[in-house]
Design a protein around this nucleic acid. Structure first.
Length: 585
RNA sequence: GCCCUGGUAGUCUAGUGGCCUAGGAUGAAGCCCUGUCGAGGCUUCGACCCGGGUUCGAAAUGAUAAUCAAGAAAAUCCCGGCCAGGGCGCCA
């Protein structure tokens, strides 16, 4: 028999129709002589009824077990008065079954196919096909599809061409570790899997395609996090002759469209733009969560004047006014201190404000007039709690940014369904690497410096800003982009500034520099992370992108379902000239 | 590489040295039930990640007036390992 309808389809208007349904047995409610079955498929659930009126079908139904795949034929009927289930799309009807057949039996599932009791991560991943049957996972994956389709429509409608770039590529010069793939026909050589299609999309601009996009898989061999998988998906975008403004408009418009099409949410555009410097000052990071306030106060100069040695020796002192947290217990404060220490702060100074005065074990080191200034600067009131970190620029900001996010969440300072976008702009081009005592590219080495800063490239690198921008949503970086360098001479200058040898550069990506010689247009683009975006849209706790991916890896970058990675067999190793690969002890 | 948290039936969980022959839920098996929808009722089944270590002495017992003697415990405490998750580093 061929199925005539899906399990989410039947309603009052089909009453009286003879239908054939196929699907999974979701629940069995049996009286022996009267059996109710919820039949499930991707589209929904439909109640089946078996009774003595069709003895043969009833006999078969009594053998139904959870997750059996079955087929039935029956008549759509109105439910008895008072037994309708109004909150179900199919809740006003049921199918009175005349025939039933078991298409496949199923063993007892090793996890509950139920959103109310989540199994552990490893069990879920091992039996992912069962985990994916849960309504929430079905919804997440289907929602992901909707987002991808909306993106494709928007990009297509804006004249972007979807072009695929290779997965087997030359190793990229910097950044994350590559996954490599040995080449059989080129013994001893290997391809890399792309960390992003960066160079290819730039070359597509040289090729004159003007506007490109790709929903691209990117691979990085780095340690995992809740929001970091070895394989992830980016919307990769590049356009020719753009201004920064064009990129912002594209990003604003894309997000507005996608949110509207998939969730009916109307975002206000343009998204606010905040300079990197301002973001660091107010929020201590370059990905601020704008759903709440709690801005940081810069108090370095002020507290340098105190008698507290820690303050005197620090290069950056900043203060977070935890409004209304003056009642925090010792335990609460210890937790905050521990959090600050995760980010390498040596400690956390806590000051309670009461009666217009400071209550703290460091208060005695701070003169009355300084106290007054500090209270004024941080806008502190009685019942507030001041949190101070004194260290170098990086540590002070990182620790306080983490505290700020923690407090925002803990004090319920925002609506979790709120979406606050912004662009962080005007990044520095270079970043000082303390360990190696050299300048690194803050974004990547193909980023165009601001025109007016070109003159500082070799003399005052800290002054050079980049035509570079991040899109941030609710404290998460969801896209990063830049105007690229399209001229070989500027590219060479930047590489020189980074201390990259010309011969070395020639070897690694000479093909890009060569392409630039043949009329490369000015170009730029950006790349939103699709997994993170969808996780945020769905409000997945912790931003866990595994919840929006069909087959993610576990924290050790393994797939518990298929057991990869595995040790290749002898024959394969031999063919690939990889006999050196030995089993790790 | 490092830090933190955790590991109890198929699954989720309770458990803070004796009240644990380990409780509950879910599940499975069986029985009952003609309007359920997380069906219900009854019965049954099923677990402390692995390896070390530490340890008090209740009840009961014997001789007794108190007391003394002998003397019993680890899911729980400690160490190591393994596994999982979160994070730091790393990830332009």
């Amino acid at each position: 028999m061929k199925r005539t309808h899906t399990c989410g389809q039947l309603a009052k208007k089909e009453i009286g129709k003879k239908v054939v349904l196929q699907g999974w047995v979701d629940t069995v409610r049996s009286y022996g002589e009267l059996v109710f079955i919820d039949l499930r498929d991707r589209y929904g659930k439909t109640q089946l009824v078996f009774s003595n009126e069709s003895k043969k079908a009833l006999e078969v139904a009594n053998q139904f077990r959870r997750e059996y795949v079955v087929e039935i034929e029956g008549v759509v009927s109105a439910r008895k008065l008072g037994t309708e289930k109004k909150d179900w799309p199919t809740g006003e009807i049921e199918v009175v079954c005349e025939k039933a057949e078991i298409l496949n039996v199923a063993e007892v599932p090793p996890l509950e196919i139920d959103d109310r009791a989540l199994a552990n991560e490893d069990v879920r991943l091992k039996y992912r096909y069962l985990d994916l049957r849960r309504p929430t996972m079905q919804h997440n994956i289907i929602f992901r599809h909707a987002v991808l389709q909306a993106i494709r429509r928007y990009m297509h409608d804006n004249k972007f061409l979807e072009i695929e770039t290779p997965m087997l590529i030359r190793s990229t010069p910097e950044g994350a570790r590559d996954y490599i793939v040995p080449s059989r026909v080129n013994p001893g050589k290997a391809y890399s899997l792309p960390q992003s299609p960066q160079l290819y999309k730039q070359i597509l601009m040289v090729a004159g395609f003007d506007r490109y996009f790709q929903i691209a898989r990117c691979l990085r061999d780095e340690d995992l996090r809740a929001d970091r998988q070895p394989e992830f998906t980016q919307l990769d975008v590049e356009m020719s002759f753009p201004s920064e403004e064009d990129i912002y408009n594209l990003g604003d418009g894309l997000m507005k469209y996608v949110f509207h099409e998939t969730m009916g949410t109307d975002l206000k555009i343009p998204f606010p733009r905040i300079t990197y410097a301002e973001s660091m000052e107010k929020f201590g990071c370059d990905k601020p969560d704008l759903r709440f306030g709690l801005e940081l106060a810069e108090v370095t100069d002020l507290l340098k004047k105190s008698d507290f040695e820690v303050f005197k020796n620090a290069s950056t002192i900043k203060c977070l006014n935890a409004v209304g947290c003056g009642n925090f217990t010792k335990g609460d404060l210890a937790k905050l201190t521990d959090l600050a220490k995760v980010y390498k702060a040596k400690g956390l100074v806590t000051i309670k404000i009461a009666g217009g005065k400071m209550e703290s074990n460091v208060a005695k080191y701070i003169s009355d007039s300084l106290q007054k200034e500090l209270i004024k600067k941080t806008n502190a009131k009685d019942g507030d709690l001041l949190l101070l970190v004194a260290d170098n620029f990086k540590i002070t900001n990182a620790a306080l940014a983490a505290l700020r996010n923690d407090l925002g969440k803990r004090l319920n300072l925002y609506d979790p369904k709120d979406f606050k976008f912004c662009w962080i702009v005007d990044f520095p081009l270079f970043e000082w690497n303390e360990d190696e005592e050299k300048w690194d590219a803050a974004h990547h080495m193909f980023t165009m410096p601001k025109k007016e800063h070109l003159k500082y490239l070799q003399t005052d690198k800290g002054k050079v800003h980049a035509q570079c921008y991040d899109m941030v949503l609710n404290g998460v970086e969801i896209a990063s982009g830049s105007i690229r360098i399209h001229r070989a001479d500027i590219q060479e200058q930047v590489m020189k500034a980074l201390g990259i040898e010309k011969a070395d550069a020639e070897k690694k990506f000479g093909f890009l520099l060569e392409a630039f010689k043949y009329g490369a247009p000015p170009h730029g683009g950006f790349a939103p992370g699709i997994d993170r975006l969808i996780a945020l849209m769905l409000g997945i706790p912790g931003g866990d992108i595994r919840e929006v991916m069909a087959f993610p890896k576990n924290k050790s970058a393994e797939c518990p379902m298929d057991g990869c990675p595995t040790v290749p067999d002898e024959k394969t190793l031999k063919e690939l000239n990889m006999k050196f690969m030995v089993e790790k002890k």
